[in-house]
Nucleic acid binder design. Structure first.
Length: 161
DNA sequence: GCCAACGTTGGC
DNA sequence: GCCAACGTTGGC
């Protein structure tokens, strides 16, 4: 089993939107980055846990937990000329873009902010893409040790810095 | 809103 | 295949 972190902008589709979906599940469409696609298509399995991360907002950070809810399949929005993420180069016979469905599990009891996570960037979270400057990956793997450390922060008093 | 980082595109 | 231009991401 692999662990993951997936970013989403709360004004576009936040964790509350996911929780409000039928079956609390949503196809993670619109990913148009090859690294992110490869992780969904080649490495994600149903049941894999996901940190749900809010980006591009007042307090970017991990806000909840979700899980992979389907195997990967071609992203239908890539074939739809009216869709925002239409890609004319993606051929249904040889799809370029894939997605997995994501299911809400729970909110964290508090937001674990990016600022807080960065305080571990030199040690426990060294090598974690999220805390590396300039990183823009919207989907990234989380090692078991990183997962345990981050989740362990949930009920701890917020470290400053 | 600014802008740095960085992936993609396309001319050559 | 190089690389400049361009677009996007996302923190601040």
């Amino acid at each position: 089993m692999n662990h993951w972190l997936m970013k989403s902008e709360p004004e576009t589709f936040g964790i509350n939107d996911l929780a409000a979906r039928p079956a609390r599940t949503e196809p993670w469409d619109g990913v148009r980055n090859y690294q992110a696609r490869n992780m969904m298509r080649d490495a994600m399995r149903p049941g894999d846990p996901i940190f749900f991360y809010h980006s591009n907002c007042a307090v970017p950070g991990i806000v909840g937990i979700a899980e992979v809810a389907s195997a990967a399949y071609p992203d239908p929005t890539a074939f739809d000329p009216r869709a925002q993420y239409f890609d004319p180069k993606s051929d249904p016979a040889k799809p370029r873009w894939y997605l997995v469905e994501v299911r809400y599990v729970r909110h964290l009891r508090r937001v674990i902010s990016l600022a807080e996570l960065k305080t571990y960037a030199e040690r426990e979270l060294a090598g974690f893409p999220l805390v590396r400057p300039g990183n823009r990956l919207s989907i990234m793997p989380v090692s078991p040790a990183q997962w345990t450390l981050i989740l362990g922060l949930e009920d701890r008093a917020k470290a400053d810095g």
